[in-house]
Amino acid sequence: MGEQTYEELVEPYRRELHLHCYRMLGSVTDADDVLQEILLAAWRGLDSFKGRASLRTWLYRIATNRCLNAIRDGKRRPPAEPLPPFEPPEPSRRGDVTWLQPYPDALLDELLVRRETIQLAFITALQRMPPRQAAALILVEVLDFPVAEAADLLDTTPTAVKGALQRARASVRTPAAPRDAKTERRVAERFAEAFMADDIATITTLLTDDAWLAMPPAPHEYVGPSAIAAFLEASASARISTLVLEPAGANLHPAYSCYFVNGSHRTDTGQLVLTVSGDRISTITRFLKPL
Rank of each mutant, 00 (worst) to 15 (best):
residue 1 M to N: 02
residue 1 M to G: 07
residue 2 G to E: 15
residue 10 V to Y: 00
residue 14 R to T: 15
residue 15 R to S: 14
residue 24 M to F: 02
residue 25 L to T: 00
residue 28 V to Y: 04
residue 29 T to E: 14
residue 30 D to V: 00
residue 32 D to N: 13
residue 35 L to T: 03
residue 36 Q to Y: 06
residue 37 E to I: 09
residue 43 W to R: 07
residue 43 W to G: 05
residue 49 F to M: 09
residue 51 G to I: 08
residue 55 L to V: 03
residue 57 T to N: 12
residue 62 I to P: 02
residue 64 T to Y: 07
residue 65 N to W: 13
residue 67 C to R: 01
residue 70 A to F: 03
residue 73 D to T: 02
residue 77 R to P: 05
residue 79 P to V: 10
residue 80 A to T: 03
residue 84 P to W: 04
residue 85 P to E: 12
residue 86 F to K: 04
residue 87 E to F: 05
residue 93 R to W: 09
residue 94 R to M: 07
residue 97 V to L: 06
residue 102 P to D: 05
residue 105 D to K: 02
residue 105 D to E: 09
residue 117 T to S: 15
residue 126 L to Y: 11
residue 128 R to I: 08
residue 133 Q to R: 14
residue 145 F to E: 01
residue 146 P to C: 03
residue 155 D to V: 06
residue 159 T to Q: 14
residue 159 T to D: 15
residue 162 K to N: 06
residue 163 G to D: 13
residue 164 A to Q: 11
residue 169 R to C: 05
residue 171 S to N: 09
residue 174 T to N: 13
residue 176 A to C: 05
residue 177 A to D: 12
residue 179 R to N: 03
residue 181 A to Q: 08
residue 182 K to C: 01
residue 185 R to D: 01
residue 185 R to F: 02
residue 186 R to I: 00
residue 188 A to V: 00
residue 194 A to W: 06
residue 194 A to Q: 04
residue 195 F to K: 05
residue 200 I to H: 07
residue 202 T to P: 14
residue 203 I to V: 11
residue 206 L to Q: 04
residue 210 D to W: 09
residue 212 W to F: 15
residue 215 M to T: 14
residue 218 A to P: 01
residue 223 V to W: 15
residue 224 G to V: 00
residue 227 A to D: 14
residue 231 F to M: 14
residue 236 A to P: 11
residue 237 S to G: 12
residue 251 N to P: 01
residue 253 H to P: 03
residue 262 N to I: 03
residue 268 D to R: 01
residue 281 I to V: 11
residue 284 I to F: 12
residue 285 T to A: 15
residue 287 F to A: 02
residue 287 F to K: 04
